[in-house]
Design a protein around this nucleic acid. Structure first.
Length: 706
DNA sequence: GAGCACTGC
């Protein structure tokens, strides 16, 4: 099944480039012909230690992987070409084997270390653990991983699994990626924002480092697209290993996909032979509804069934319930979001029910509005979902749409993140990486000029770039923080206003999934508990109260439980705060704190206005709704807000569109504070806001210092 | 007075 592409270029010169990394320790070298294969009694070519018994047991399984037979071809392709593409289906073993082949092959390939990127943290961790075991080394020594908040590598590390975002961050301090002799971008078909940017950066780095090798690994689809982008790089195809999956379509489109999914799950449960069912739905609420209905109907029909929901906001211990096999004679039915398509793999699934839909965040640069919409999945996703039924034995996939829909209405592959995202973070990090000419940056999928313009405009408003489009000092500082530019601007502002400690806590709380938990069965109690955190100023300062109380409490788990905080998300917020504080400290940005002079709430709000002055809204004439200043959109305060009254002006963190457009995380801002902090936008003499807004500002003018 | 797909730095 191999097709090495005929367009492959002639091999580059074998002379080491100027960025050759000095050879690190190792018991054997390329000259001794080290190989991944071994015989009992051999010593590890890498550590010089005798191999363990387990090593040989694992080796037996590795030799059976489809990838194994092609190890010489893989090595040859990568050695002879600066960039190449490897297509490997599920079960080919590419993720665990390829880096080992290349390292063992030695020569230039093993001169530095090998980076393997993954879109997800868990994947980076678990694959690293597996490979360390396969190589008979301790995790964190020769084989390690690096994800946010966790660096399990050492001086000795030769193969490093990392998230794509982590490698992108590393480029800021080492733009030539000089530590690495090979960079493998795995799961490239997922087209994450970070992988797409790494593509473009790597293309430039490869020109400067002729000895560097880049391997793009992907599941089957869009091979030609990758090849074209990498100027006809050679391609190797490794077959997968999976059981056949029989696919069924519906005759007519289904009006109510939740009802149809429930129907089909119950049908399988009653009529099909044993085997677990995995059903894809779009969100928490419909999953819980479907679970309830299937459970009820299974009870009526007398089938022994275990119905389990699965989505990311589900507490960990409940998520874990999907993995253990059901008792003999009981069928497991898992109703899951997209989390089960890529992030989690459940063994024992024989039937897949696929309505062909998922929720996707879409950004409209024209209106600045991001909204979460139910959209059709891609044909690639449909194939991936079906594949979930054939992991342990032959399975069946029930698609709740017609073959015509599949052919004509499903896009071939998922819309890359980069063309449906707000690009302000992308632009500021590229600028920081020295990519000034964004128009000519070699994106595999260039984002729309409009999206790019909006991002540049926003960064200009925030003072991150000057009129020439170059990063300002503030902009350079902002780019160091792994948060959205609105937030990094707020941090930089807080540093000068002496309230950075408080602002970081708030930003950490805003950057993690909702810290306030509100379990279905105890909503009233949760609301009551949360009211203890309420600040009259609004949500930002309420988040600060919650964070401070939590972090000053001795028994955090108990505190979370009693006050209906999500322990998982609060821990995450602590991590984020610590990381951001570390950056503030290492850059020496902080001025003296204003905590003692009682200005803290004022200064916190002023700092946020510096980052969010475009995300403010004023009350309309009727006094009921709000109008956003940026695009005159009618919005309302989200009912979850701590704000109990309707102030004239509010600042909001984000908008969410459901039936109506809501502002989430809202803080009251006096008009005079807007005029003082952002006069370019709010001074009534110069601002270009509507009449109503002007009137309010005019009235406030005498109170302001400007 | 309503609802948060999924990742990542």
């Amino acid at each position: 099944m191999r097709d090495t592409n005929s367009r492959s270029r002639s091999p580059p010169a074998q002379t080491p480039g100027p960025f050759q990394v000095k050879k690190k320790g190792g018991a054997a070298t390329a000259a001794s012909g080290c190989d991944v294969d071994a015989e009992p009694g051999d010593k590890s070519w890498l550590t010089g230690q005798p191999y363990s018994k387990r090593f040989f047991e694992i080796l037996k399984a590795r030799r059976r992987l489809p990838c194994w037979e092609m190890r010489k071809e893989v090595v040859k392709m990568v050695r002879e070409n600066q960039s190449s593409v490897l297509i490997g289906e599920t079960g080919s073993g590419k993720t665990t084997q390829v880096a080992q082949f290349l390292l063992a092959a030695g020569g230039d390939l093993g001169s530095g270390s090998i980076a393997v990127t993954q879109p997800r943290r868990v994947a980076a961790m678990s694959v690293a653990a597996r490979v360390a075991q396969e190589m008979d080394v301790e995790l964190g020594q020769e084989v390690g991983y690096n994800i946010r908040f966790e660096d399990v590598t050492s001086e000795k590390t030769r193969i490093k699994f990392m998230t794509d975002g982590m490698l992108l961050r590393e480029c800021q301090t080492d733009p030539l990626m000089s530590k690495y002799s090979v960079i493998i971008l795995d799961e490239a078909h997922e087209r994450t924002l970070a992988t797409d940017i790494l593509f473009g950066l790597l293309k430039e780095v490869l020109q400067k480092r002729p000895e560097l090798r880049c391997l793009v690994m992907s599941a089957t689809l869009e091979a030609e697209k990758f090849q074209d982008y990498w100027s006809g790089a050679p391609l190797l195809r490794v077959p997968g290993r999976m059981f056949p999956v029989e696919t069924f379509f519906t005759l007519r489109p289904e009006k109510d996909y939740v009802a149809a999914a429930v129907e089909v799950c119950c049908m399988i449960n009653q009529q099909e032979p044993p085997g677990d069912i995995l059903c894809f739905l779009c969100g928490e609420e419909e999953i819980e509804t479907a679970c309830f209905e299937i459970e009820t109907r299974a009870g009526e029909s007398g089938c022994s069934t275990m119905v389990l929901p699965l989505y990311s906001s589900l507490p960990m211990n409940q998520q874990r319930r999907v993995f253990p096999p059901a008792p003999e004679g009981t069928r497991k039915i898992i109703i899951a979001t997209n989390i089960a398509e890529t992030s989690l793999t459940i063994d024992g699934v024989v039937y897949v029910v696929d309505p062909g839909l998922f929720k996707q965040m879409l950004y409209n640069p024209r209106t600045h509005v991001e909204s979460l919409l139910v959209s059709p999945i891609s044909r690639a996703s449909a194939q991936q979902r079906a594949g979930r039924a054939g992991r342990t034995r032959p399975g069946k996939c029930f698609r709740l749409y017609t073959p015509e829909t599949f052919e004509k209405e499903l896009p071939e592959s998922t819309y890359p993140e980069i063309i449906r995202s707000n690009l302000s973070s992308v632009v500021i990090s590229l600028k920081k990486l020295g990519v000034d000419d964004l128009v000519h940056f070699d994106f595999m999928e260039p984002p729309s000029p409009e999206s790019m313009m909006r991002a540049l405009e926003m960064l200009h408003f925030l003072g991150a770039i000057d009129d020439e489009g170059d990063l300002t000092d503030a902009g350079k500082a902002m780019a160091d923080f792994p948060v959205d530019p609105h937030l990094s601007k707020t941090i930089v502002a807080a540093c000068s206003r002496g309230c950075v400690s408080e602002v970081l806590a708030i930003i950490a709380m805003l950057s993690v999934p909702p810290p306030f938990s509100r379990p279905r069965h105890a909503q009233k109690a949760a609301d009551r508990a949360h009211r203890n955190f309420a600040s009259g100023y609004g949500d930002h300062l309420s988040l600060l109260t919650a964070y401070s109380q939590y972090s000053n409490n001795g028994s955090k788990a108990d505190y979370c439980h009693e006050h209906f905080l999500s322990e998982r998300n609060m821990k995450q917020a602590e991590n984020v705060r610590r990381q951001l504080a570390g950056i503030v400290r290492s850059r020496g940005l902080e001025k003296e704190s204003t905590e003692k002079n009682g200005m803290i709430t004022t200064n916190v709000r002023k700092s946020f206005i510096e980052g969010f002055f475009m995300q403010c809204a004023h009350i309309d004439q009727g006094g009921k709704n709000y109008m956003t200043v940026r695009d005159q959109q009618m919005v309302a305060i989200h009912p979850s807000s701590f704000l109990q009254h309707k102030p004239e002006w509010v600042m909001y963190h984000e908008t969410v569109v459901t039936d109506r457009c809501y502002m989430r995380n809202v803080t009251a801002i006096p008009a005079e504070m807007l005029i003082e902090v952002a006069p370019q936008f709010y001074h009534p003499d110069t601002c270009k806001l509507n009449e109503q807004a002007q009137k309010i500002l005019q009235r406030a003018l005498p109170r302001s210092k400007r």
